Amino acid sequence: MTETAVYAAGGVVWRMVDGKLRVLLIHRTRYRDVTLPKGKVDPGEMLAETAVREIFEETGIRVALGMPVGVSRYRLPSKRTKIVHYWSAEATEAAIRASAFVPNKEIAAIEWVTAKKARSRLSYPVDLEILEHFLQLVDEGVLRTFPIIVLRHAKALGREEWDGEDAARPLAPRGKKQANSIVGPLLAFGARKIVSSPAVRCMKTVTPLAAALGRKVEKSSLISQDAWEEGESDARTIIGQRVRGRKAAVLCSHGPVLPDILSELALATGTLRGSYLGSASALEPGAFSVAHLSVENPGSGIVAIETHIPKV
């Protein structure tokens, strides 16, 4: 991120009505325009949690993010550049029923429309470009997706600072802050299942997320660094289980193991391997890559992959 830019995030919120696609538009009170739900990043937020928060604040609908659908850039009256990241986001019937939206000083109305009507009603070309990118993915048969989230453990104490077994090495103070800071972004992608190396630094990284979900962490030595160093790791088994499950999952492991995990994910989904796998696996402590797969046909390959880095 650059200092001069204003960052924001939002989504193309969608639902199916009688088998037909509907997209959610918002009518803003002050500007008397029609746009996609979005808003500026709050201090300390990562973009994904901004998108989910802003969608909820503007529409009353709680969503989990799907695949990224583009980034818009435009000049503000202040001459600063505004950069807005968008994701697709399905609004479930339960979430819609739970919405407490009422017209307010910021949003006058929300409206579910067909793609054709959305094209004609959006006030700004930059929003239309995002919509068209989303609709292109829909035309390609990719609408519902689920994420496999590959997470590197947060910052741990250095080996030189620890006298015990490596697997028992704890998080550093910065690592503890990172573990808390990534809870919101991971929840934004609908994280539910958590699988972790049994190493303390991995388990402590996902403990805040598990607490937020009220779920237990599944320990697996198959993605531990000890097993990897001994040639006994088995990322293929873990990846196979998660792809077959077709549910959002977080896999927390170690830097040296991550390339194997991403490689097995590509193989399990019939994805052509390339340099993007190296980038997605070369994670800083506490960072994670989100691989989006088609719910209907995960074997069609990784639809999109994105990396998120904690601000701590």
Rank of each mutant, 00 (worst) to 15 (best):
A9T: 14
R22V: 13
L25F: 11
Y31D: 12
L36E: 06
V41L: 14
D42W: 14
P43Q: 11
E49K: 06
G60C: 01
L65G: 02
L65T: 00
P68W: 12
V69Q: 00
R73P: 00
L76C: 04
S78W: 07
K79I: 04
T81P: 00
I83C: 01
A89P: 05
E90H: 11
T92R: 02
E93K: 06
I96K: 05
R97P: 02
P103N: 00
I107T: 08
I110C: 05
T114K: 05
R121E: 13
H133K: 12
D139M: 08
R144Q: 06
E160G: 03
R169F: 08
P173M: 04
S181E: 14
A188R: 03
F189N: 04
F189K: 02
K204A: 15
P208S: 00
L209P: 04
G214S: 08
K216F: 05
E218N: 03
S220W: 12
E232Y: 00
A249I: 03
S253P: 07
S253R: 01
G255N: 14
V257Y: 08
P259L: 05
T271P: 13
L272F: 14
L272K: 09
R273D: 08
Y276T: 05
G286M: 01
G286A: 11
H308G: 03
H308R: 08
H308F: 15
